[in-house]
Design a protein around this nucleic acid. Sequence first.
DNA 1: CGGTAAATTTCACACCGTGATCTAAGTGTG
DNA 2: CACACTTAGATCACGGTGTGAAATTTACCG
Lengths: 416, 416
Amino acid sequence: MAGPRRRTVRDLRRNNRATVLSKLYFDGPLSRQELGPLTALSSGSISNVVAELVADGLVEEAGSVDSDGGRPRTLLRVAPGSGHVVGVDVGETRVRVELFDLSLSELARVDAPLPLAAPDGTYDAHEIVRLIAGGLTEVLAGTGVTPASLIGVGIGVPGIVDASGASGAVVHGQTIGWEAVPLEAMLRAPGELPPQIPLFVDNGAKTLGRAEMWFGAGRGARNAVITLIGSGVGACVIADGVPYQGSSSSAGEWGHTVLQVGGRLCRCGSRGCLEAYVGAEALLERWREAGGSWTAQDEEGALAELLAAPDTGQLLDETAEFLGAGIADLVNLFNPERIVVGGWAGLLLGPRLIEPVRRAAASYALRHPFAQTTVELGRLGADAVTVGAATLPLARFLETGGAERERIVSGASWMG
Amino acid sequence: MAGPRRRTVRDLRRNNRATVLSKLYFDGPLSRQELGPLTALSSGSISNVVAELVADGLVEEAGSVDSDGGRPRTLLRVAPGSGHVVGVDVGETRVRVELFDLSLSELARVDAPLPLAAPDGTYDAHEIVRLIAGGLTEVLAGTGVTPASLIGVGIGVPGIVDASGASGAVVHGQTIGWEAVPLEAMLRAPGELPPQIPLFVDNGAKTLGRAEMWFGAGRGARNAVITLIGSGVGACVIADGVPYQGSSSSAGEWGHTVLQVGGRLCRCGSRGCLEAYVGAEALLERWREAGGSWTAQDEEGALAELLAAPDTGQLLDETAEFLGAGIADLVNLFNPERIVVGGWAGLLLGPRLIEPVRRAAASYALRHPFAQTTVELGRLGADAVTVGAATLPLARFLETGGAERERIVSGASWMG
DNA sequence: CGGTAAATTTCACACCGTGATCTAAGTGTG
DNA sequence: CACACTTAGATCACGGTGTGAAATTTACCG
């Protein structure tokens, strides 16, 4: 009920800065002239706002466009080098830290392999923090980027990330043995990271979903669901253009939607979950039960063998039916414009399954909402987790019209 | 990406007017002093905004509170008589039109019985429009309320209401035989309703959900799902304080969530829907299959008999398991703070089923999100559909700080 | 009747967006 | 090569806004 803080006349300017900055960022180089109608601002305001952004170094001129018989328009764009963002992917076997400029072009990357997991498969949170901090300093040192120009660091982790508390993001990761690990607080502990750098922690699947929305199959949709099928199954729900989080940031746990009351046991302890039928781990298990076997050591290779095997048609059709039913649930409940099937297993199975999945979804979903929806394959691989993570601070940067950065820079200068 | 039009300094004022008005409306009489911290506005602004609202007649003084040794605070409240709203419920057997003042106290009510339905159970849309218009004039005439003081009319109808088109709300109601009926355009046709009156059409179940959010079991929650179990099953999803609509306003079709791939045939044509197990119609059908019988003519009476029958324990336990699994899906996907079980059948079954439903939901849902959720019974009966409908124009009124009303009033005055 | 305390109002100030007007920077023509 | 023409962008007076401190109002208490 409090709403956004748009109370004073200054907030108005910040808001308009943000509008202009976002428009320039997403819709490429634009002239002041074009910016006016696009942002519903008067020419005078455009001039003022742009002048301010240029003075702050956030926007720069990018050539000009001739016009027949008149002053040429000067094109403007967000200066790619005016800030940097870092994306971190805490994966199953390694921590990847990537440095991007504002246009999300990769400037540097560091992969730090995780030490062998403890026998029970849990991660040591302190070790993760060390690897993130180490990767960050390495990536900065290698490129000469100063911490002061960092807009922020986005971190994708496995498990549920609850950011509703006061002390920063807390991670609950059943599969990695994390129970309420205060990752954000640990990273903010003195000595770990350069101070004053904004941190954004989110579930890795959701950051992948963000990447798909910004640069992949979700582009342009206001309401979409990015499904992520890997060893397990998750989803990233976009409602009215923003990721829907729920009350404790754990919305979109699609994998544990019930498709068969009293059905197959799922690794979550419940029965009949979607994940128990279409997750890669479960799918392989079902294959084994049906007499199948494979030689690959990893799930990805095994799944490829399953796809290539001659006698798995019925298993795959059954999988398509369950996946279609699960997608129908998404259609009925969220009424999105687009559903994207992603995740490494989703992309691997996609070409074979997408058509039967569409048919199954059509039969299980209500006609009207299904007619509004397209079901597509994702376009980005699992590599995009870091890009999606980097998207978190960048989105904040654009929303605040770059004000956040100013604060950081001045904060850093206080310490200088 | 366009965002709300808060560009000029004037929009700032409108926004603050809305904040103050809403706070006064929902949190009862308040003094200017208390309003300051509550709205994050300075004392000076509060004075200005309140003076404006009082001058417009939207806010009035409501006594004062003594303080020991100081000027007493003057309490302010939204003037209940400064405007009126109308709620319409297009039900299965009658059209009900109710007139409320701003505090949603009922001033008048008219029930117009529907003529006997056509043999195929379809409604004649023109007849409905006539009944709505007739009820509206009757209710206004009976109380002497002028159309000029009408904030707007909210209408709850069965079926999916798609408001995404340009020509107003369009209704798709499979059960009443409506296929893309342009109800809003028909109501706006000259001669039907007093001109210039804002219309708001929404699904009746969703208006009931709104009522439950404003005045019932949903009060205070930011993320909630109001489930509505009647003959069929629906839901109203509240995300971040606002009803989530999806891309064509048909989000929340929870009743056709798949709980049993290849399960019972549902009246929607699909299989294994939640509605096919826990909807009143389906539940009675299942009882009949198990050898049960009843004497009541209507579903409500029949369901009461089912509850009282001695041998329906297993049937009810099974129903609770399905309902619990369906609720678990809501928990996993939406991660709400609260789930309310409502609808006439939900309220009837509630006392018997709520505990086993909670247990089933706990077993099917993920631990973390389930721990954030409470599952409660609704507090409002089906009568609240009109209240919920009236809530639609009222919400707009509060959001715009009463600006909408000003436009209407002046619009009416143009017409002499 | 004066002193004290708390709630409101008033007011100078720093901003903001608008839209008309002015300036800059090109093209085309005689 | 000068001049008119055209279009992009900058400037500026104006009406409007929230802020926060000072002034004013309105009570109670001794």
